[in-house]
Lab assay of single mutants.
Amino acid sequence: MGFKLLSKLLVYLTASIMAIASPLAFSVDSSGEYPTVSEIPVGEVRLYQIADGVWSHIATQSFDGAVYPSNGLIVRDGDELLLIDTAWGAKNTAALLAEIEKQIGLPVTRAVSTHFHDDRVGGVDVLRAAGVATYASPSTRRLAEVEGNEIPTHSLEGLSSSGDAVRFGPVELFYPGAAHSTDNLIVYVPSASVLYGGCAIYELSRTSAGNVADADLAEWPTSIERIQQHYPEAQFVIPGHGLPGGLDLLKHTTNVVKAHTNRSVVE
Rank of each mutant, 00 (worst) to 15 (best):
M1F: 07
G2C: 09
K4T: 11
K4C: 09
L5M: 15
L5V: 15
L6G: 11
L9R: 15
L10K: 12
Y12N: 10
Y12W: 11
L13S: 15
A15D: 08
A15W: 06
A15Q: 09
I17K: 15
I17G: 14
M18A: 14
I20G: 14
I20R: 07
A21G: 13
S22W: 15
A25P: 13
F26N: 10
S27Q: 14
S27L: 12
V28E: 09
V28L: 08
D29R: 10
D29H: 09
D29S: 09
D29W: 12
S30E: 12
S31C: 07
G32S: 09
G32W: 10
G32H: 14
E33L: 08
E33D: 10
Y34C: 07
P35D: 08
T36E: 14
T36G: 10
S38M: 13
E39T: 12
I40R: 07
P41V: 13
V42W: 05
V42E: 14
G43T: 05
V45P: 12
R46D: 07
L47Y: 01
L47G: 04
Y48G: 07
Y48E: 13
Q49A: 11
Q49L: 10
I50L: 08
I50N: 05
I50F: 08
I50D: 03
A51G: 09
A51S: 10
D52F: 10
G53Q: 12
S56E: 15
S56H: 08
H57I: 02
I58E: 06
A59Q: 11
Q61P: 05
F63K: 04
D64K: 15
D64L: 14
G65N: 10
G65A: 09
G65H: 10
G65K: 09
A66G: 12
A66V: 14
V67I: 09
Y68C: 04
Y68G: 04
Y68A: 08
P69E: 15
P69F: 09
S70R: 02
G72C: 03
L73M: 15
L73I: 07
I74R: 03
I74T: 06
I74F: 05
I74Y: 05
V75N: 01
R76D: 06
D77R: 03
D77Y: 07
G78N: 10
D79K: 09
D79H: 09
E80Y: 06
L81K: 00
I84V: 10
I84G: 01
T86G: 00
T86Q: 00
T86W: 00
W88H: 00
A90I: 07
N92F: 00
N92T: 05
N92G: 07
N92I: 02
T93F: 00
T93H: 05
A95D: 08
A95W: 05
L96Q: 01
E99C: 06
I100Y: 04
E101H: 14
K102Y: 10
K102I: 13
K102H: 15
K102E: 12
Q103T: 13
I104V: 08
I104F: 06
G105C: 06
L106Y: 12
P107D: 08
R110G: 08
A111V: 06
A111H: 05
T114Q: 00
T114E: 00
F116D: 02
H117D: 00
R120I: 01
R120P: 01
V121P: 01
G122Q: 09
G123N: 06
D125F: 05
D125Q: 10
V126Q: 05
L127K: 03
G131A: 07
G131S: 09
G131T: 07
T134E: 02
T134V: 05
Y135I: 04
Y135N: 04
A136H: 05
A136W: 05
A136E: 04
P138E: 09
P138V: 08
S139C: 04
T140M: 03
R141G: 03
R142D: 13
R142H: 13
R142Q: 12
L143Q: 10
A144W: 04
E145H: 14
V146M: 14
E147Q: 14
N149R: 15
I151E: 03
I151F: 08
P152N: 02
H154F: 14
H154W: 13
S155V: 14
L156K: 06
L156W: 03
G158F: 07
G158T: 06
G158V: 05
L159M: 07
S160K: 13
S160M: 12
S161N: 12
G163N: 09
G163I: 04
A165Q: 13
A165H: 12
A165G: 12
R167C: 07
F168T: 02
G169K: 04
G169E: 05
P170H: 02
P170A: 10
V171K: 01
E172K: 04
E172W: 01
E172D: 08
E172A: 02
L173N: 03
F174V: 02
P176W: 00
G177V: 02
A178Q: 09
A179C: 04
H180W: 01
T182H: 11
N184E: 00
L185M: 08
I186W: 03
V187G: 02
Y188P: 01
V189S: 03
P190R: 10
P190C: 05
S191N: 11
A192G: 11
A192T: 11
A192E: 11
S193L: 14
S193A: 12
S193Y: 14
S193E: 13
L195S: 00
Y196H: 06
G197R: 01
G197A: 14
C199G: 02
C199F: 02
A200T: 06
A200V: 07
I201P: 03
Y202S: 08
Y202M: 15
Y202P: 05
E203S: 04
L204T: 09
T207C: 06
S208W: 08
S208N: 15
N211K: 04
N211T: 07
N211W: 03
V212L: 05
V212T: 09
V212R: 04
A213Q: 14
D214Q: 07
A215P: 03
D216A: 08
A218G: 13
A218I: 12
E219R: 07
E219L: 07
W220L: 03
S223M: 02
R226S: 06
I227Q: 02
I227R: 02
Q228G: 10
Q229M: 14
Q229C: 04
H230Y: 09
Y231M: 02
Y231W: 04
Y231T: 02
E233D: 12
E233Y: 12
E233H: 12
A234E: 02
Q235T: 09
F236S: 11
F236T: 10
F236L: 09
V237K: 02
I238E: 02
I238L: 07
G240Y: 06
G240T: 01
H241T: 01
G242L: 02
G242M: 05
L243D: 15
L243C: 08
P244N: 05
P244K: 03
G245F: 02
G246I: 04
L247M: 12
D248W: 06
D248C: 07
D248T: 12
L249T: 04
L250F: 08
H252D: 02
T253L: 03
T253Q: 00
T254A: 10
N255E: 15
N255W: 13
V256L: 15
V256F: 06
V257A: 03
S264L: 09
V265R: 11
V265F: 08
E267Y: 10
E267W: 09
E267K: 12
